[in-house]
């Protein structure tokens, strides 16, 4: 049996194995987080520390054709963050080796 896949029986195992690790979180509203995962629950509420949030702000200038949007990226840092689970789209742990 492949040892890498045998560690995971359900999707939450992926999150459990990422505790105390730096994870990437994709959120609704074109936001992304990276931070150290301290806790989670069945809603995917998350506690992260040492967090950097990246906010993609897409602006379509008046009259500009589709595909000529300008994307501004804003970043900010937070020491400790509670993330409500319903905003979470994707969580990616550091690569298992």
């Amino acid at each position: 049996m492949d040892p890498a896949s045998s560690a995971i029986q359900e999707p939450f195992d992926l999150i459990r194995l990422s505790l105390s690790e730096r994870v990437f979180v994709k959120l609704r509203g074109d936001r992304e987080l990276t931070g150290v995962l301290h806790a989670y629950d069945g809603h995917m509420n998350l506690i992260l520390s040492d967090v950097e949030e990246t906010i993609m702000i897409v602006e379509q200038p008046d009259g500009a054709p589709e595909g000529q949007n300008t994307v501004n990226v804003a970043k900010r840092k937070m020491e400790m963050l509670f993330v409500r689970g319903d905003g979470v789209i994707l969580v990616s742990p550091p690569s298992r080796t």
């Binding site: 999707p11 994707l90 969580v91 742990p93």
Partner: peptide
């Protein structure tokens, strides 16, 4: 690209 990814089911 992600080595592993957890996708929340509601999406």
């Amino acid at each position: 690209r992600y080595g592993d990814a957890f996708i929340r089911g509601n999406n």
